[in-house]
Design a protein around this nucleic acid. Sequence first.
DNA 1: TCAAAAGTGTTATCATTACACCCATGG
DNA 2: CCATGGGTGTAATGATAACACTTTTGA
Lengths: 238, 238
Amino acid sequence: MPYTYEYPRPALTVDCIIFGWDGTRELKVLLIQRGNEPYKGQWAFPGGFVDMDEDLETAALRELEEETGMKDVFIEQLFTFGAPNRDPRGRVVSVAYFALVNLNEHKIAAADDADDAQWFAVKELPDLAFDHKKIMAAATARLRGKLRYQPIGFELLPENFTLSELQSLYETILGVTDINKRNFRTRIIKMNVLNEVGMQENVAHRPAKLYAFDKEKYEKLVAEREGDLLRRGMDFEV
Amino acid sequence: MPYTYEYPRPALTVDCIIFGWDGTRELKVLLIQRGNEPYKGQWAFPGGFVDMDEDLETAALRELEEETGMKDVFIEQLFTFGAPNRDPRGRVVSVAYFALVNLNEHKIAAADDADDAQWFAVKELPDLAFDHKKIMAAATARLRGKLRYQPIGFELLPENFTLSELQSLYETILGVTDINKRNFRTRIIKMNVLNEVGMQENVAHRPAKLYAFDKEKYEKLVAEREGDLLRRGMDFEV
DNA sequence: TCAAAAGTGTTATCATTACACCCATGG
DNA sequence: CCATGGGTGTAATGATAACACTTTTGA
């Protein structure tokens, strides 16, 4: 049953770039192995065609679940890719979505159009289908950008975490190894968005305090800072 | 000459949200009066359908010029709007673009599908077609967000400007009136991205120094600060 | 008692805030 | 000589950076 239009139309797809963290010093990203042409057998971001009556975000979540089994993810729109030749099947415009998850709390299982779904270390990605290498670059840039002014570490970490884990995450995403421990802790604690929630147990060294991110406190502070920004005028970096 | 596809496809459009500044204490935005149904006669952002062989950004610039005569604008992608019922003609997904211009250096002239093109004060917008009110909200949020960490004032101002003009612009965009003059100036000057380029003439008060934004200096500093950020670890706002 | 990692004290320096004051011009 | 903006001095406070040190655990 064909669909006919007066003017030609691009096809519309969504793609999901899901970053994951599992406590090792490695940032990962979720890929599926394509089960169909084009690029059959190659790795790509989960995604697919948008249905006519569904929201873009809904389409992204649906495709993500269909292809990887992953549910309950907060995604945000990243960018729309529409270069005329990005897909060999013809003009395909893709709206990319972006999420950060704790890998242990979001189990995956390949299904459907995908032969397989797997986490890959961001530093050791395989060749990607379509223009997904470019999409990956945009996602990485967004990740670092967000790190600058939003508390995204807490989305990647488990609910309770130590300051060393948090620092390790920051170091990994930023690609450095020598953030000053003293100052990192002072700054984080002074922000006043963490609650102490207990202690590590059964570790072969002094047990670390466990913290949890306090979203309410954070949002209250953001609201207050809004006022500060207004009073100051601006703050642009450098 | 109809076009036929195996599965239904949304139509794809672009919209341009162009903010302008003319030296008064008013931020403006560029609208066109629609010449065709739907919403004929109502005001909307310039925009239209994407051609099959053109880039999204190219489409946005083409529509902008066709409908308003405006050329040589730096646009950036804002967001893609795709709610199923945002357009009465059926499923239409729109990629919105965003720009800041100095109003006096970018003259407009209505043409084509538009009956008219005009600058409107952001504070006194007419009813907008489609979901353009929502798009406007997203654009305003982006504008304030950028103000936080990027020197966007200089895109809106003429090449040479006084610090009072700059402050007035910041106050307008942020919607406040009482940024401390002394501190605003100290901060701006310390950033070291402005060059003194002369003096006001023929004003009925002490003539102000004129400044120009030094993009090279700015980019050098951004690159350096990149390193700082890495050393510090993070910086998220509160 | 040792290794490993957690966690703290302190100081010099720099940025920010808040307030009050002086300056140069055209009319 | 005055109204109108333009422009500056400064002191108290708070944030940041740099470095070295102490503490607590399991093995």
